[in-house]
Design a protein around this nucleic acid. Structure first.
Lengths: 140, 140
DNA sequence: ATAGATACTTGAGTCCATCAAGCAATCGTT
DNA sequence: AACGATTGCTTGATGGACTCAAGTATCTAT
C-alpha cells in the first residue's frame, strides 16, 4: 500500500474530508488492481487503450517519461494483455493494443473498482449535481 | 510523476470530476514534496511526527509493512530531518522524532502544499459545508 | 526460567520512475 | 536527392517504495 498523501494539518473540515476521499479512493484503486494481480500503473495503462496508441502518446497523456511506458507496456505484454505492432504509416511508432485477454482483464478491473461509482450512488441525483458543481468550482 | 488512478470509464459526471480531483490532488502533493526534494512518502511520514512515535505505530497508521518504514525513516535520518532514539521504557522501540531541521522542512511543505486549502477556499463557507456533508455521505 | 509475542532490521526481489545515451525512421531544407 | 534535425522508442543505470521471509533483541506471561 502506498503511503497516503495526507496534508500535514488540515486547515478546515472540508480539507480533511477531501484528504479522506483521496486516500480511500487511491487505496480502493490499488486494491481493485491487486485483485487482478495488476499494479495501479498497469491497470491505469490498460484502461487507456480503448483505441490503439503509440508509446509517446501514452507518455504524454499520462505525464511521464517514455521509457517508463516502455517498461510498463513490456510487463503487460509479458502478461499477454497487450501487443506492440509497428505502425505501417510511421515505422518509428509502435502501436499498443489490448489483446482479448487484456480486454477481459480491463473489464474485470472496471467491475472491481466500484469505489467511485458506489460513492456517487449514495447521493441522490440532485446531490450528485451539487457535488459536481462544487468540485468543479473548487478545481477551477 | 505517478500514473493517475483513473477509472476505466466514468459512469457519471460526478465520478469523472471525482477522478479529476484525486489526480490533481495527488500531483500537487507530489510537486510540493519535490520542491523540498522529498518523495511523497517522505513528506507524508514527516507530517506524522508531531508527537514522537515508534516504527510499528507508524507502520500501522500508514498501512504498510514495518520494514518499509525502516527504509523511509533511514533516508529521512540520513537527510538530518529525523532521529531514532531508543525508548527507555521499552528498549525494543525506537522513537522517531523530527529534528529542528525536520520541523522546518515540514513547515515549508505544509506551506507548499496549497492545493487542498486553495480549492476549499474557492468555495463560500456555505458551500464548504455542503461539500463536506456531500462527501461524508458519499464516503459513508 | 522459559516460551511466546513484539519491535525492529536486513536481504532479496519487484515495480515505478527518471535520466542519459543510443538507434532507427521521418521531416525539412536546400 | 541528401543532409541535419527532430521524433519515437529502447536500453542501461540509478534510486525510491513496497513486500516478504528470516533474523536479533527485548519484553511478557506463566
Amino acid at each position: 500500500m502506498a503511503l497516503p498523501n495526507g496534508p500535514v494539518t488540515a486547515s478546515s473540515e472540508a480539507e480533511a474530508v477531501l484528504f479522506d476521499l483521496v486516500d480511500v479512493y487511491d487505496r480502493a484503486y490499488e486494491a481493485a488492481a491487486a485483485e487482478l494481480s495488476l499494479s495501479p500503473a498497469q491497470a491505469c495503462l490498460l484502461g487507456r487503450l480503448d483505441e490503439r496508441r503509440g508509446m509517446s502518446a501514452l507518455a504524454e497523456e499520462l505525464g511521464c517519461d517514455a521509457s517508463n511506458i516502455t517498461q510498463i507496456v513490456a510487463r503487460l505484454e509479458a502478461l499477454g494483455l497487450v501487443t506492440r505492432e509497428p505502425n505501417p504509416r510511421d515505422r518509428r511508432v509502435r502501436l499498443v493494443t489490448r489483446t482479448p485477454q487484456g480486454d477481459e482483464i480491463n473489464h474485470r478491473f472496471a467491475a472491481a473498482f466500484t469505489f467511485a461509482r458506489t460513492a456517487v450512488e449514495r447521493l441522490s441525483p440532485d446531490e450528485q449535481n451539487q457535488l459536481t458543481a462544487l468540485l468543479r468550482k473548487a478545481l477551477s
